[in-house]
């Protein structure tokens, strides 16, 4: 009941396709069983890198603000936006700074490297251990369900349109089996020169 990771609820998922990545999250924010908001986004765009944050809503906000600060300073210092791989290491070290009083979050990162044009995704535990994955990364209160959906639906080298369909179906069907996730969803499809953001209508219970 008082597990910080499941007070507010929420889920996120990222997938790799052919020269593209997708990252998606639900929109619910609750207080235990009571739904509060259906517009709480958990995916944040930081230049051409995307960060999904699930877990304790307070820490989701705190970390999204912290990473906005850090990436803005990075952008001014380096005169370019941060690459996904670089950002992954920034997330890792930022989380490990709080090793003995951690943020209760499950971050995921997705993006396409602007130099190599290679898609990149990864996930983390709450103290910053990076989980590099070639296919998909899941996170949040519906992560068990997401693992199942992704294992069933995912196939490598999907085109952006098919990747959108796959990630959307995976997320939607996973959150429908979780009382703490759902209430709408947002999907980002990222290719090397385009970002498409889609808001999904879902069942509202």
């Amino acid at each position: 009941m008082s597990d910080p990771n499941s007070i507010n609820g929420g889920s996120a998922v990222a997938m790799v396709g052919k020269d593209c990545v997708a990252i998606a999250c639900d929109l619910r924010l609750g207080n235990q069983s009571l739904g509060l908001a259906n517009n709480f986004e958990k995916v944040f765009q930081l230049g051409h890198t995307f960060l999904g944050l699930t877990g304790l809503a307070s820490d989701v906000t705190t970390l999204s603000e912290t990473f906005r600060l850090k990436t803005n300073l990075y952008k001014m210092r380096e005169e370019r936006t941060i690459e996904p791989e670089t950002f992954a290491n920034l997330v890792s070290s930022t989380l490990y700074e709080k090793r003995f009083g951690p943020y209760f979050v499950g971050p995921i990162v997705a993006g396409i490297n602007s130099q190599t044009k290679k898609p990149f995704i990864c996930g983390f535990d709450l103290i910053g251990c990076i989980d590099f994955a070639k296919d998909f990364i899941v996170s949040g209160t519906a992560s068990d369900q997401l693992y199942g959906m992704c294992e069933a639906l995912y196939e490598p080298n999907l085109e952006p349109e098919d990747l959108f369909e796959t990630i959307s179906q995976a997320l939607l069907n996973a959150v429908d089996r979780d009382a703490l996730s759902g209430w709408g969803a947002v999907v980002y499809i990222v290719t090397k020169d385009q970002v498409v953001r889609k808001v999904l209508r879902t069942r509202q219970d």
């Binding site: 603000e65 912290t66 906005r68 600060l69 803005n72 300073l73 001014m76």
Partner: peptide
């Protein structure tokens, strides 16, 4: 720069 970003945060 840091002051401005801290304010934004």
């Amino acid at each position: 720069r840091y002051t401005a970003q801290q304010y934004l945060k």
